[in-house]
Simulated scan of single mutants.
Amino acid sequence: MIGLADVPVDVGRDEAQRAAREELADRVYQEAQPGLVERVVDWLADRLADFFGVIDGAPGGAAGLVLFLVLLVVLVVVVRLRTGKVVRRRRVRRAEVFTGPARKAAAHRLAAERARAGGEYAEAVREWFRAIARELEERGVLDERSGRTADELAAEAGALLPGSAAELRAAAVLFDDVHYGGRAATAEGVERLAALDAAVRESRAVAT
């Protein structure tokens, strides 16, 4: 956060905008949503321009410093509240793996292969992760339970398949990011899931 020592006493528009950009470079603002930082900085610059236009010719000094700090504090509070809502919404959207009619692991696997061949990587990610989940249920590694989330599946299966635990966690994150977070899927991500599927089919669960 910006302190009094970081802001020049004689505040000008260039100095104020530079200080605002340094504050808004914080990672929490960058993660809020695309374009948010730019819009906030533009808004702040406009407010400062209005202020300095009003007091043009009058001594700035402490008055300019106080107003700048007030504006910046308001911005910090608003943006952090907005960011908190985004984070909470992402957490809520981590929903269950399966939706719709139940299908066998082979059916999900075939759908994933077709999606990969057609360049539909997001669909391939969804179907391959579901193929892994259904395979684990069909083999009795996991019990068949509706409403299981990707994170829960990775934790439960990882305890029984320690050799694949890290990849299961990564696969769960990828599934959530693509299916619920709107992240663009890649061919590399699809291939990683395909490799995990093959590894899971050949692995043996350990006793817990």
Rank of each mutant, 00 (worst) to 15 (best):
V77D: 01
R90C: 05
R93T: 07
A62M: 01
D50V: 07
E31T: 07
Q17K: 13
A62T: 06
V66L: 00
D42L: 10
P34R: 09
P101I: 14
G100I: 04
V41M: 08
F51C: 00
V97L: 14
L44Q: 08
F98S: 01
Q30S: 14
E38N: 10
R114F: 07
A122D: 09
I55P: 09
A25I: 02
L24G: 01
R89P: 09
V97K: 04
L36N: 01
E22H: 08
R90F: 10
V78F: 14
V73E: 08
V37K: 00
R88V: 11
A124S: 05
Q17C: 03
A102Y: 10
R89I: 10
L72F: 03
L81C: 08
E22K: 13
R109P: 00
L44I: 10
P59W: 01
F68T: 00
V86Y: 03
R89L: 10
R116L: 15
P59T: 13
V70D: 02
E23R: 03
R93A: 12
A102G: 13
A111T: 10
R82A: 15
L24W: 00
A107L: 07
A25R: 14
F51K: 02
R82I: 08
V70W: 06
T83V: 13
R90T: 09
G100V: 02
V92S: 12
E113K: 10
R39K: 13
V70G: 06
K104R: 15
V70T: 11
G64I: 07
Q30Y: 08
R39P: 12
G35C: 07
D26C: 01
V92I: 13
R88I: 02
A117S: 08
A16L: 04
T99S: 15
V70S: 05
V73M: 03
G64V: 05
A19T: 10
R114P: 00
T83N: 06
E120L: 11
D42Q: 13
V41T: 04
L81R: 12
D56L: 11
D50L: 13
A32Q: 12
V77H: 02
V41R: 02
D26T: 02
A105E: 09
L65I: 00
A19S: 14
Y29S: 12
V54K: 15
L110I: 05
V92K: 13
G64M: 03
A107P: 07
R109V: 07
R21K: 15
G53Q: 05
I55K: 13
R91M: 12
G61N: 01
E38C: 01
H108E: 06
L65F: 00
A106N: 06
P101M: 11
R88M: 07
A105L: 04
A102R: 14
V78Q: 09
A45Q: 11
V87G: 04
V78E: 09
R126T: 12
V86K: 11
E96P: 04
E123A: 15
A45I: 05
V79S: 11
R94D: 05
D42I: 10
